[in-house]
Every structure is written in structure tokens, then in C-alpha cells.
Amino acid sequence: MSDDGGRDVEAPPIISVRELTVRARDRVILERVTLDIPDRDVTGIIGPSGCGKTTLIRTMNRMAERSGGLAISGSVRYRGQEIYAPEVNPVLVRQKIGMVFQRPVVFPMSIFDNVAFGPRLNGLDGDELEAIVLRSLERAGLLGEVGSDLDRPALELSGGQQQRLCIARALAVEPRVLLLDEPTASLDPIAAQRVEALLFELRREYAVVLVTHNLQQAARVATRTAFLYQGRLIEYDETKRLFETPREKLTENYVTGRFG
């Protein structure tokens, strides 16, 4: 894969995937995928349904091994560190590399407790905990909306608010990377737009990896975009270039078909 001169070429990637192959019992889900995720930027991952997008980002924080029967080979490094090394604790990997799912998954507890979930695991409490909860809600653009009543059940929030709560909850763990798997797919356009805007903001402090079916969304938010097809990385480039002058025929078909 070409790793041609982007703007951030001099900065080291925060995650580098090399020759990643994921096999299910009788088929290959990802085949020799190699790509770098830059720090403090939004990276998009697009591709038709079933091409392996979810599997790819789930290998990046060792969630993939939870789905049984997958054989993972190759290398995933987080800031130069091999996350699949035997001595690595996946719990710590996940603390550094957070994840948000397609459908908002809030815990059946209060807004505060949802956001405090991660920090509490790390032993935070009292003022410190409250500060980090408020900061995370603010970063997720939710503080103004939910107001002072953080003891409300989180399930009372709207879908869009719930998804931003999930983002706030992930941020509260203070990760460096945020993996998002179609985070706006189940939201209405207005709610989706808010989440999208939030991601764009987050790019200043975090490495954001955004899996999306919505090509316009990738075009709007992602600096670089990877196109996956049938488990292979077809093209990975600056988003503008990928959409306007794709090098591969497959990419062109996909991007134009989408807009077509």
C-alpha cells in the first residue's frame, strides 16, 4: 500500500496494522491488511456490508477475540507496542483505545454512573470523579442538554443523546484512540449531524477511527479514508483524493455507485 506524502507524514502513527489476517472457521474475513492510523485526526473506513470493517476495528482494541472462532494473525501496534504480545493485558489496551458501537449502548443506570463507569474502575471517586464526568459530558457536547440532573436514568435520553453519552463515557476513560462503528447509523439526521460535528471536534485531541456506510459522512469528517472490499484493503488515501480520483476501479465503482 502506498503511504504517500500526507500532511502528517512526519508524525508517527498511533496504530499501525501490518499484514493482519483474520480467519473464521471456513473463510477469510480480513486478508493481509496493512494500514496506519494517524494521531489527532479522523480516519474513515468504508466498504460494502460484510467487507470486514467492524472486524478490522475490533482487532485494534482486542475486542475481536471475544467473538469465538476467529484466528488472528499479523501485527497491530499501538504507539510501537505490539498489542497481541502474550504479556499484554487486553484490559489496558481497551483503556487506551476506546470504542463506540453502532447502536447506543447505555447501561441501565443514571447518566452520571454511565460516564463514571470507566473512571470508577480505576479507583476515582469524590470531586475528582465528578470533575472528570462533567468534563467528559462537556466534551461530548451533552452537558448543556442534560443540565444539572445527572441522576436521571440514562435510558430516558433520546437516541442521539444516548450515543453522545456513550462517547462521553468512552472519553472519561481518557483514551488516546476512539474507534467508532457506524455511530450515527441508528440516529435521525439531526442527531447524526450533532455526533458528526462532535467527532470533528474530537480530532484535535484524539485519534478517531470512524467506520461508516455514509460516504458523505466520511467525506465530511475524515482526513484519510480506507476502502475495504471482501476483506482486503483496496485503497487508503486522503479522503478527497480517494473520492475524486480513485486509483482502483473497485473504489471508483463503489464511490460513484454510492452517489449514483
Binding site: 460494502p48 456490508s49 460484510g50 457506524e182 441508528s186 465503482n253 455507485g257
Partner: peptide, 13 residues
Amino acid sequence: MSQAASAPPPANE
């Protein structure tokens, strides 16, 4: 391909 992409999200199904 576009058909596949525009199919309703499988989760709802």
C-alpha cells in the same frame, strides 16, 4: 453493491 449498501441495517432486522 449499491443495493447491499442501501439495505436496512441488519441490527434492526
